[in-house]
Design a protein around this nucleic acid. Sequence first.
DNA 1: TATGAATGAGTATTCATTCAT
DNA 2: GATGAATGAATACTCATTCAT
Lengths: 204, 204, 204, 204
Amino acid sequence: MNAEERKKQILEVAKRLFSKNGYYETQISDIVEAADIARGTVYQYFKNKDDIFATLLDSFYRQWEQAVSQGINEISIRTIDPVDYFRHRVRMTLVFFEGDREMCNIVLRMGHGLQRDFEAIMKKIEKRIYNLIMSDLELGIRAGNVRRDLNVELTANLLDGALLHIAYHYFVNKKGEKAAVDIEKLAGEVTAVFRDGIFCVPKQ
Amino acid sequence: MNAEERKKQILEVAKRLFSKNGYYETQISDIVEAADIARGTVYQYFKNKDDIFATLLDSFYRQWEQAVSQGINEISIRTIDPVDYFRHRVRMTLVFFEGDREMCNIVLRMGHGLQRDFEAIMKKIEKRIYNLIMSDLELGIRAGNVRRDLNVELTANLLDGALLHIAYHYFVNKKGEKAAVDIEKLAGEVTAVFRDGIFCVPKQ
Amino acid sequence: MNAEERKKQILEVAKRLFSKNGYYETQISDIVEAADIARGTVYQYFKNKDDIFATLLDSFYRQWEQAVSQGINEISIRTIDPVDYFRHRVRMTLVFFEGDREMCNIVLRMGHGLQRDFEAIMKKIEKRIYNLIMSDLELGIRAGNVRRDLNVELTANLLDGALLHIAYHYFVNKKGEKAAVDIEKLAGEVTAVFRDGIFCVPKQ
Amino acid sequence: MNAEERKKQILEVAKRLFSKNGYYETQISDIVEAADIARGTVYQYFKNKDDIFATLLDSFYRQWEQAVSQGINEISIRTIDPVDYFRHRVRMTLVFFEGDREMCNIVLRMGHGLQRDFEAIMKKIEKRIYNLIMSDLELGIRAGNVRRDLNVELTANLLDGALLHIAYHYFVNKKGEKAAVDIEKLAGEVTAVFRDGIFCVPKQ
DNA sequence: TATGAATGAGTATTCATTCAT
DNA sequence: GATGAATGAATACTCATTCAT
């Protein structure tokens, strides 16, 4: 096993344990035991326990950055139907969180409660999500698709909280249930609830 | 200072510190130092550190229970305008969280990330909020005020996440800012966003 | 309740708890709770926890002193049959220990293991018992009733250990059993085992 | 120093301190200081303080088990002279206790006073010693060597208490004295005291 | 690189004792 | 005398981190 693989292995194990037991209730002992490596090996690849956790958060942030930037540019928001665009954003968000339920759990459940240096990373993630929604809304207003009188700060927080909570509810809490979640249908229903409140479109 | 007051004093100090630094980063030493009492005194009133935290969560839950049960009964939901009722609920929720920003911070920020026995209390709080929204929606459907085709599970989570996130955003994150939050206005705007997506009312 | 009675009450309660749980596992809290008095009250009557225990040991020692000195003097040892005398001593010892099984338990079970100042008191008790047996044996030798070649140091220890162990076995360990112990019979049997080994008497 | 040696080292140091100061008056601090190791090292080898003590008691029990089972079987008791056999048992017991005076001190002095889980181990040791004596006596009765009318329960306790007390007296209390104890002579004298009271042999 | 024994600062908790009321 | 809230020194135990092999 080369260095890259070993580092990845440790991260995988740590992610599983952090997700299950939280940062403080996960010991280095648990990680080395689960990974079946020596205590010292962890410190060959990470400065300390914080570093492992921060690495996980950071890589999550990078993946999120990449995911939300995919296939969307200023052109498309002008050409496609704004409600379709909204639905697409919602679906993409849900798809992303579904992709890594353990990180989803870590970020959604314990993100806010983290002290130390993690708080900064979490704020960065939050800020990024928030800004994205904000810019979408502001673009929509300029394009005449979104109600001019909308309180964008409020709405951005509304959507932020709503989407993350749904992701948590369907992908973490209801994890054990048999029936797979139909994300397409979910995205449609979320859009339906918000459409008339946000967009300047004829009532269906 | 009698027993009741001393216990209350410890809880106040602990609440402030837990809110600021989280459960794990708050030491008994910090509490006794901030309260200017002896180490042992804490243990005259609480079994252990867990007990202090659980007492805070529990009392928060009890207050919330009382707050949401006030002035609303099955009659009123039939007589008052459903949208006004919704706005009222939103306002009450925000007023409640604004009333104790430290507990608001504790519950909203670190609630989910808590392991141990606290998880059970948090789940109870969440469940209670969720059920309240659910029952409101179901009553509305039966009364013909809420869209029949609404996915209530989804919408309850949507509203849950949205409201708590807004409370966190305006009462915890922006705490330092000068301008006081106009809760009445906020409640109106939240209602406006959700109204057409949830209720069977003529578009304004 | 006057001062004398209150002190006695505390001693009784403490004795019961020390006997049941040992010195270290008995807390002042346990004592005040069982006696239904305030914490501070204990310290009106005793200097500290040690003082309570030492008082118990000391009073036990005094009672023992008195008991063994009763009805025996140098005359009687010359006139009565030496074996009868031995049997009488054995019986008196057993009767004494049976009289206060809790102190019996404390002295026999935890006596040796005690550190601190108690060790001195225990040594005093042991020494007193040991010396008594020694002097009996030496008197017997001078009177020609006890074998001249007997190792009195060894025999005194033999008898000491044997008697205390029997007291412990029949009065503490077997405490719960229905059938009362027949001390008269016991004393006879103990005497029978030791008689020929110790005394210069014709074999029966 | 490998793991086995380190564990042994800690046990040795702990044994010395427990023997000197008792269980409750021996602190982990004392142990790590005496062993010149770090506080945490103790917990690499033992679950907690109880575990160290229990390990000592248990290993003592195991050694005793092995010692008493050596070289004696049902055959020998029938062929060798019963009094010689008795003397042999006494000598072996004394030799065993002399071999580890610190454990001797722990078991004989503080054994009975121990609460917690140690009580169970101590009872096991006591029971084992008691049963051994009992079975010897019963075998002797069946072989016609021991008086038929002997109260075996009483006698077993008599011998148990007597032997342990002698071991304590000669190996713990008089430890400092110059003249070494002549165990052979001691065993002979003990036998002489009990011989006529226990065995059916012509009076010498 | 990998190991895992050793480290020791840090933390919660206990409990005998005091003292103002 | 009686009370019991307050005290704080003492103690067991944890766990991230180091470093010689």
